[in-house]
């Protein structure tokens, strides 16, 4: 065995070890909460965590599609920070239209979906046609879309009391809320499209290696653009869940969604053997992030420390991903 092979092997195993750090950290935290936080390891708590994580899970699926198509380099690869803004805009539009009694849920949904597609389309256009950095483009889009939502809702809280939306949070089957079942179905459908269809495999090929994908005849830009549309549609779907959990649209919901979405999606990479962002990883990451949040609160940790902790975890997760990639 040559020295070179040896060193490559040791760097690969080092890279794998570093890539596993976030996972070890989170599992460690969960064990800690299990031992210290009251009633953390109970069925009730598991249900609460799952239900609270539904909105994050949905937008994580959207974000993972963009990362898969654009590559998981946080700066130059695929990322869409505008999804939480799309969600609150759709929620704001639907809440406003539903509170004007002449509009039904169907019409409100169509208007919200069109708004979401417009955001996704703009992102796709700016990133693929003008070759703008996705990170900056979608961050700017986030700010702009939140601004539009402020105009739509006048930054006011709007109550929504609609049977179809309330049904999402209500028990449907053996005490399991309908929302949980819907998200399970949506996750399976998304998994099928992203991981089991030719389109999904092409999407992953485009993100894996842009050049190789181009040479083999794939329209990389089109695939990347489509992923932004998928993300915006997931943002739209998420808005029903945001309306359901909050019985309406409240200003400021986007900030927390943004932090948890980024943390969950990149944490999810730690679950994949190759440490890349996957849809399953992102969905599981969403549950973990909410579980950590609930764990800290159950132990009575100050809400501002929770903010610091979440921010630090993002840094650890993204830094270890970058480091393990460099060593690989």
């Amino acid at each position: 065995m040559s020295l070179e092979t040896l060193s490559r092997r040791s760097s690969t195993s080092l890279s794998a070890a570093i890539g596993a750090i976030p996972l070890i950290l989170f599992v460690g935290l969960l064990i800690y909460f299990g031992l210290n936080a009251p009633n953390f390891l109970t069925v009730t708590n598991l249900k609460l965590v799952l239900v609270q994580s539904l909105p994050v899970m949905l937008i994580c699926i959207g974000l993972s599609a963009v990362v898969m198509a654009g590559g998981d380099d946080v700066v130059s690869g695929g990322i869409d920070l505008s999804i939480p803004a799309t969600t609150v805009l759709c929620a704001g539009i639907m809440a406003s239209l539903l509170s004007a009694e002449s509009t039904g849920l169907f019409v409100a949904s169509i208007v919200a979906l069109l708004a979401a597609l417009l955001v996704g389309g703009m992102n796709a256009l700016l990133v693929t046609r003008l070759s703008m950095t996705p990170l900056l483009t979608t961050l700017a889009m986030f700010v702009a879309v939140v601004g539009v939502n402020n105009v739509v809702t006048q930054r006011k809280r709007i109550n929504v009391d609609h049977d179809a939306i309330n049904a999402i949070r209500e028990p449907f089957f053996f005490g399991i809320p309908l929302g949980l079942i819907l998200v399970a179905l949506i996750t399976l459908i998304a998994f099928h499209f992203l991981h089991r269809t030719k389109w999904g495999l092409n999407l992953q090929a485009a993100g894996g290696s842009r050049d190789a994908a181009s040479i083999s005849g794939l329209n990389v830009n089109r695939l990347f653009g489509q992923s932004f549309t998928v993300a915006s549609v997931m943002g739209f779907v998420c808005s029903y869940f945001v309306l359901a959990r909050g019985a309406g649209s409240s200003p400021g919901v986007e900030d927390n969604l943004m932090v948890e979405m980024v943390l969950a999606t990149f944490l999810g990479a730690a679950f994949s053997p190759r440490r890349v962002v996957t849809m399953w990883g992102a969905a599981l990451g969403a549950v973990l992030v909410v579980a950590i949040s609930v764990g800290f609160k159950s132990m009575g940790v100050n809400v501002f420390w929770t903010g610091l902790i979440k921010g630090s975890l993002i840094v650890v997760v993204v830094a270890t991903a970058a480091l393990s990639q460099r060593l690989n």
Partner: peptide, 15 residues
């Protein structure tokens, strides 16, 4: 944050 406040009631329920 009104939504965080609302979600916090779940923790009280579970406690």
């Amino acid at each position: 944050d009104n939504q965080v406040h609302a979600d916090n009631h779940d923790i009280l329920l579970n406690s």
